[in-house]
């Protein structure tokens, strides 16, 4: 079965869309040799990410099995995960003023 999205590491809580995904689509998310099916709630453009499970605000966002930022609000499984709900923890000169 062809993957619609890829979750790079099994620890990850986000997956990357390998094509434009429409709302309410059930998509195949590949992780290594395994895959699972997730219902996506919102349009996800090619290359963008969605949560693979409910992520509470304040939790680390994991991709490549590494911390890539932090949820600024609750992110429901299957919804778009990007700059509107994820903040960077690095290069934050605004927090040091």
């Amino acid at each position: 079965m062809k993957n619609d999205a890829i979750m790079i590491h099994e620890k990850d809580n986000v997956a990357t869309a390998l094509r434009d995904i429409k709302p309410n689509e059930k998509v195949v998310v590949g992780t290594g040799d395994k895959s699972s099916v997730i219902q996506v709630q919102q349009p996800i453009p090619y290359g963008h990410k969605f949560a693979v499970r409910d992520i509470p605000g304040g939790e680390d966002i994991l991709k490549y099995g590494e911390v890539m930022g932090r949820a600024t609000q609750d992110i429901a499984g299957g919804t778009h995960a990007h700059i509107h709900n994820i903040e960077s923890l690095r290069g934050r000169g605004d927090l040091e003023r």
Partner: peptide, 28 residues
Amino acid sequence: RAKSAGQDIRGGQPTGGNIKGGLTTIEE
């Protein structure tokens, strides 16, 4: 050096184009 501007570097790194392409943070 990046932080010395006193701002969040997002928009500069990752760039606007990176963000359109789906990259969310400099870490990613």
